[in-house]
Computed example of a mutant assay.
Amino acid sequence: MPTKMPSPSIRIPIELLTQTSFSQFGTVIENPAHSPLPRSQLGPLPTTVSANQGSALKILDVTHMSNLYSLAPSKKPAKAVMNMFVCAPRDLRPHEPSESMPSSWGDLDFDEDDYSNADRELFDVRILERHPFTTQTFIPMGLSGQERHTQYLVIVAPTLPASSSRLHTGRPPPYPTPQPKKKKNGIKDIFARARPSPFTNENAPPPSQFSRLHPSARPKGPGLPDLKNIRAFIATGNQAVTYGAGTWHAPMVVIGARPIDFVVVQFANGVGIEDCQEIELETGKTADEGIVVMVDSDSSGKVQVKAGVGSVKANL
């Protein structure tokens, strides 16, 4: 059974999925030429080279894959796996007025008059999961970047410090990370570190094995999700997404008329609790509805962006 966590009453506006806005959670895989953002807002472009006898453009290093299973308690090695998820459209409920404030966007005015030309529905976030020792890449198949009737949401949350876990659940972190074993040192080793040779650096501390990883791919620790800073992004068929190792996220949420096939690439070692960990969100005693994503659509069914870059009735 998943660990349960009380949920505050929060309504979340939808943001445009860009590499800049998503960087703390993972990477966005897309051809910059198809981005809805102007060139000035794209940030550094990936390196490209000519390929296939000049008939193709090869875009290098589009995502960051990590295998951190050496940190897993079982020490069972993992292998790269590729699966397919056929994700059906999610059920949305009709919009109802609420006093809930959007997470991370409390300074914005989400007045009801702003949505007079939009059809608003609500998606209830009831479960979050993470893969603590591996990145996970979702690649949509058969979905046009111009599709107006089927899109998907990417819902993510930062990780709280482990010390906050007891405050939320009344017990220690549900998924502890093993402490590194301390090396037993002899007298010779102690003195060697105290007076290192000026001609070598063999006694200098080795660089962290994670220092070369993209920040989103480094271990997140055993903490619970930070529900007050949960965010929701809308993605097009031109975009794939990689969740960083240990990133809390909702299972894929398809919005619209038809299912989407996703090819999913990750590492796994077959130990259930090490491959996937889940948190079930329970509406708190003082909360009205829990965590809700506000899904606003125009007359054609296209989801509208209501926060961040490209917000306020922007079309994807």
Score class of each variant (00 low, 15 high):
3 T>P: 03
4 K>M: 13
5 M>K: 00
6 P>T: 01
17 L>F: 00
19 Q>Y: 00
22 F>I: 02
24 Q>W: 06
33 A>S: 14
35 S>M: 04
35 S>R: 04
38 P>Q: 00
39 R>T: 14
41 Q>P: 10
46 P>S: 01
52 N>C: 12
52 N>E: 10
56 A>L: 04
57 L>G: 07
63 T>Q: 05
67 N>F: 09
67 N>S: 10
68 L>W: 07
69 Y>W: 10
79 K>I: 14
81 V>I: 10
95 H>M: 09
96 E>Q: 15
100 S>F: 11
107 D>K: 15
107 D>G: 15
108 L>C: 03
109 D>Y: 13
111 D>M: 10
114 D>K: 12
115 Y>T: 05
117 N>T: 12
120 R>W: 12
121 E>P: 08
122 L>W: 00
122 L>V: 11
123 F>H: 06
130 R>Q: 07
131 H>G: 05
136 Q>G: 08
141 M>H: 14
144 S>P: 07
147 E>P: 08
151 Q>P: 05
160 L>S: 02
161 P>I: 05
162 A>V: 11
166 R>P: 10
167 L>D: 14
170 G>W: 05
172 P>S: 08
173 P>S: 03
176 P>V: 10
176 P>T: 06
177 T>D: 15
177 T>I: 15
177 T>L: 14
177 T>M: 14
180 P>D: 07
181 K>D: 09
185 N>Y: 15
191 F>V: 13
197 S>R: 11
200 T>G: 09
201 N>Q: 12
202 E>C: 15
203 N>P: 13
205 P>K: 13
206 P>T: 11
208 S>T: 04
210 F>Y: 09
212 R>F: 13
218 R>S: 03
218 R>E: 04
219 P>W: 01
227 L>I: 05
229 N>C: 10
233 F>R: 04
234 I>C: 04
236 T>L: 08
236 T>A: 06
245 A>Y: 05
245 A>M: 06
245 A>L: 04
251 P>Y: 07
252 M>A: 10
252 M>P: 09
255 I>E: 00
256 G>R: 02
259 P>D: 08
260 I>R: 05
266 Q>L: 15
267 F>W: 15
269 N>P: 03
271 V>L: 08
273 I>H: 08
277 Q>G: 08
280 E>C: 14
284 G>R: 05
287 A>K: 07
289 E>Q: 14
297 S>G: 07
298 D>L: 04
300 S>M: 09
309 V>M: 12
313 K>Q: 14
314 A>Q: 12
316 L>E: 01
